[in-house]
Each structure stands twice: as C-alpha cells, then as structure tokens.
C-alpha cells in the first residue's frame, strides 16, 4: 500500500483479556496492520477497558501477560487509545487503574506524551463517526 489515500482505521475492543482470545487477536492484527501506514486508533469500551489495566499478573493462570505490548504501540505510530469514561465508571474503575501508556513524539525531540485519551460516550460517538474502517473485537 505504498500509494493511495490514508484511511482512518479504528479497532474497537470490547472484551476482557485472557477469558477469550479476542483481546490478543486484536492486538496482533493491530501490530501487523501497522505496516500499512494508515491513521490507526484504538477504542476500549465496555469490558475492553480491562485489557489495559495496570498490574496484570498472569503467572498463576499459565498464560502470557501481553499487557506490556500495549506500551510498544507508540513505536508502531499508534498513539491514539480512546477509553470511554462511562465504561470505566460502570465498572468501578478510573483512569488511575489503567497503564500509563505513552509514545515518544519524534517531531518534538522524542518527548513522551500520553496515548490514552479518556473521552465521554458522546465524544467517542463523534470519533467513531469520523472513521473510514472499523474493526471489532
């Protein structure tokens, strides 16, 4: 895809990690898809917010903890992670329960900037309305 217009891709994540394979599959598709140089963002709504909680420890369930990989997304030029505020609130969570996912801004002397954007349901609806392609997991 070396030429052509850049499209706005959004990956919508609505499942908790580990109980099903959706979260990991989504992350893998995101990383593979990053090679196509599109305008990519991720949304975490509903139970999807559990994918990026801090302090995940999977040693006792015998599965790989893939939460550190979300911190690599910035290297793949994926710097917009939308989290719906209502989803956090409904689940007794706040932004403080999420990982501090950051990216380094190449155009600003590699300054670290937050990737997570907590938005309201109404704001997220606007962001979704502006997408070209939506992929749901």
């Amino acid at each position: 895809m070396s030429e052509g217009t850049i499209k706005k891709f959004m990956y919508v994540n609505r499942k908790p990690p580990y109980g099903t394979v959706y979260a990991l599959e989504s992350l893998e598709v995101v990383l593979i898809g990053a090679a196509f140089d599109q305008d990519v963002s991720l949304a975490f709504i509903g139970d999807g917010v559990y994918q990026i909680t801090k302090g995940q420890s999977t040693s006792d369930i015998g599965m790989k903890n893939f939460s550190p990989t979300y911190n690599a997304l910035g290297d793949y030029d994926i710097t917009k992670l939308y989290v719906e505020q209502e989803s956090l609130t409904e689940r007794g969570l706040s932004v403080d329960d999420l990982m501090d996912i950051v990216y380094e801004d190449e155009d600003d002397d590699w300054a670290e900037k937050p990737s997570i954007r907590v938005v309201s349901r109404a704001e997220l609806a606007d962001v979704i309305a502006g997408q070209d392609i939506l992929l749901n997991f």
Partner: peptide, 8 residues
Amino acid sequence: DEYQIAPA
C-alpha cells in the same frame, strides 16, 4: 523483555 514482542 520490556514489551513481550519482537519488533517489526
């Protein structure tokens, strides 16, 4: 070790 993936 840090990110649990091999980078592209």
